[in-house]
């Protein structure tokens, strides 16, 4: 028994060194040499500063009014911290019959309808009123983008066709026709809008 215990301790130490130190450190070395951009979080740099990550969504909502910022596409509601907090990922975890969920969806839908000048019973794509699992979802569905095109075009003072073309450019399809879903990267789209059709400030 004592001999067994000695073996257990030694083996745990050896395996900890192997799988807990050598393995992750070696992987870090390989990843940093081969693919530093991705290994460091796919960060977007602009003028030497980090603007964000292509993989992590950002909020385009005014926290005081819950309304979208002028000229931007809005992303999905977020339950991560105060919204798109990349150090506190998570979903709402509200159950399907929880009144709090239904009320929140109803309120968000009402705001979106008003923002975009839609009637009170206009259909809203479901992803635009539901919180994602991570709270950091970088994407919206193409339907959710399409709904916002007229507003963004108007606020930026350009034609809908121009904005639509930009949306199209930032839309990815399914992988190998089967996996995942078509989606629009909101941060990339909004960044392209700023570059191509800057807001008059």
């Amino acid at each position: 028994m004592l001999k067994q215990l000695r073996t257990a301790v030694l083996l745990l130490v050896v395996l900890t060194v192997l799988t807990g130190l050598i393995y992750p450190v070696a992987m870090t070395g390989i990843a940093q040499v081969l693919m530093p951009g991705k290994a460091n979080g796919s960060l977007i740099h602009r003028d030497g500063a980090v603007v964000g990550s292509t993989l992590i969504g950002q909020s385009f909502i005014d926290p005081k009014t819950d309304r979208v910022l002028q000229g931007y596409f809005r992303g999905r509601p977020s339950a991560a911290g105060a919204g798109y907090d990349a150090s506190a990922s998570g979903g709402s975890n509200l159950g399907p019959t929880n009144k709090a969920l239904i009320d929140r969806v109803n309120a968000t839908a009402a705001i979106i309808r008003q923002e975009n000048g839609l009637t009170a019973s206009a259909p809203i794509p479901v992803d635009l009123v539901t919180a994602s699992g991570s709270g950091l979802d970088p994407d919206i569905s193409p339907a959710a983008a399409e709904l916002q095109v007229p507003r963004v075009a108007r606020q930026r003072g350009v034609s809908e066709a121009q904005v639509k073309a930009l949306v199209q450019k930032h839309t990815s399809g399914r992988t190998l026709w089967i996996f995942g879903e078509p989606r629009v990267n909101v941060l990339a789209l909004n960044q392209a809008l700023d570059q191509n059709f800057p807001l008059a400030r």
Binding site: G91, S92, V126, D127, S141, E146, E181
Partner: peptide, 13 residues
């Protein structure tokens, strides 16, 4: 244009 369904707690991709 949209996956539809119950998207609460799910990711668009």
């Amino acid at each position: 244009l949209s996956a539809g369904g119950n998207m609460e707690g799910k990711e668009v991709r």
